[in-house]
Amino acid sequence: MFYKPYDVLSQFTDEGLDKSSAGSNAHSVESRRRTLKDYISVPSVYAVGRLDRDSEGLLLLTSDGQLQHRLSDPRFAHPRTYWVQVERIPDQAALNQLRQGLVIQNYRTRPAQVRLLSEEPTLPPREPPIRFRKQVPTAWLEMTLTEGRNRQVRRMTAAVGFPTLRLVRVAIGKLRLEGLEPGQWRDLTPTELEQLRRF
């Protein structure tokens, strides 16, 4: 399990590099985007699912193709929990829409567990910090989904009028992010692995 920092790709190579300038003086080190290779030196492991470059938090890596399939396939409905900072304070109507599922890009999302957190969760500061607007309050939601479509949380909160500012995945099933700082990883314990296989 790896605590993916903000602005890091969920893959070991940057396929978006400018091929025309790669290897030439025109391609500076600064333009290379950070990848998992900058943090993890374990060979032959792959990310289970993805976290967008602008999202943070728990990412699992494995060399077990069968386990990767089970954890990635929406049919198995594995819960993933996120802390989501949104612009403004969502009302009950918006929270209920998120809970019941809503249509985004011609697709109805599955019902989700959603609650408004009473206080800001304790997280390491994000670098760079989110944009701050004095006139616009923010709130934190805890959202648990059983599917992982591309940019789904961001699209859901935007659809109900509360754009996502910061997104941190804090749990996959019973595995939680606690004990890791951004950029750190650790092996799963045998018990944790067994729980994942029984999912």
Rank of each mutant, 00 (worst) to 15 (best):
D38V: 03
Y39G: 04
I40M: 01
P43W: 01
Y46D: 10
Y46K: 13
A47W: 03
A47V: 06
V48W: 04
G49I: 03
G49K: 00
L51A: 00
L51C: 04
R53P: 05
D54G: 04
E56H: 02
E56T: 01
G57N: 01
G57E: 02
L61P: 02
L61A: 04
S63L: 08
S63D: 15
D64C: 05
G65P: 01
Q66L: 14
Q68E: 13
H69S: 08
H69C: 03
R70V: 12
R70H: 12
L71F: 09
S72C: 09
D73E: 13
P74Q: 04
F76I: 05
F76H: 12
A77C: 13
H78A: 12
P79A: 09
R80E: 06
R80C: 03
R80G: 02
T81W: 00
Q85G: 09
Q85M: 15
Q85H: 07
Q85C: 14
V86N: 00
E87L: 12
E87C: 11
Q92S: 14
Q92A: 14
A94T: 11
L98G: 09
L98W: 10
R99A: 12
G101N: 10
L102P: 02
V103Q: 08
V103M: 09
R108Q: 15
R110V: 06
P111R: 07
A112V: 09
V114L: 10
V114F: 11
R115C: 14
L116K: 01
L116H: 05
E119P: 11
P121T: 09
P121C: 07
P121R: 08
P125H: 08
R126D: 06
P128N: 08
P128K: 06
P129C: 05
I130C: 15
F132Q: 15
K134N: 13
V136C: 03
P137V: 05
A139D: 00
W140P: 05
W140Y: 09
M143K: 10
M143N: 11
T144H: 11
L145Q: 04
T146P: 02
E147P: 05
E147L: 07
R151N: 11
V153S: 07
R154T: 03
R154M: 02
R155I: 05
M156T: 08
T157R: 07
T157V: 12
A159N: 10
V160M: 11
F162A: 00
T164D: 04
T164V: 05
L165S: 03
R166F: 08
R166K: 07
L167P: 02
V168H: 01
V168A: 00
R169W: 03
R169S: 04
V170L: 09
V170W: 06
V170C: 11
A171P: 01
G173W: 03
